[in-house]
Simulated assay, not measured.
Amino acid sequence: MPRFMGFVRMEEGVGTPPQSLFEAMDAYIAEQAAKGVFLDGGGLYGTEDAVNFVVRQGEVTRVDGPYAEAKEVVGGWAIMQYDTLEEAVADQQVFAELHAKHWPEVTVISTMRQISTGPEAPGE
């Protein structure tokens, strides 16, 4: 069964999501977990304590947050499994619509990508 990683990106420093979004997400995640779709996930704190290791031309450099140049940051993630890509895409849209309904003043980019288990192409 294909697994997917979903994540949301948003502008940093937009504040805490409204309680109604937390409640809607709790219900949505509980439903997805009961169906065996939601495997794991959670929200992420801001980049104030983030650490990046940049590899450039064979050299490793450590860069500590916060990152003033960052326009968007990953705010949350999830690992899910579906029978088909179509089911994954449909559920990702439901997830995005929850954000549109409960936090309309914030621009959120909801992304879903299939998790690779080897050198094969997606969907194999």
Rank of each mutant, 00 (worst) to 15 (best):
R3G: 05
F4P: 01
F7C: 02
F7H: 03
V8G: 13
M10Q: 13
P17A: 11
M25H: 01
I29K: 01
I29S: 01
Q32E: 07
G36L: 00
F38H: 08
G42T: 02
G42Y: 00
L44F: 15
L44G: 00
G46A: 10
T47N: 14
E48A: 15
A50F: 13
V51S: 08
F53W: 06
F53N: 11
Q57Y: 13
E59L: 12
R62C: 12
V63C: 07
V63R: 06
V63Y: 06
V63W: 02
P66S: 04
A68M: 15
A70I: 04
K71S: 11
E72M: 14
E72T: 01
G75L: 01
A78P: 09
A78H: 03
D83R: 14
T84R: 12
L85E: 15
E86F: 07
A88T: 11
V89S: 05
D91T: 13
D91N: 14
D91V: 05
Q93V: 15
A96N: 14
A96M: 04
W103M: 12
E105D: 12
I109L: 08
M112A: 09
R113E: 13
Q114M: 10
T117N: 09
T117R: 06
G118P: 10
G118L: 03
P119V: 08
A121H: 10
G123D: 02
G123Y: 00
G123W: 00
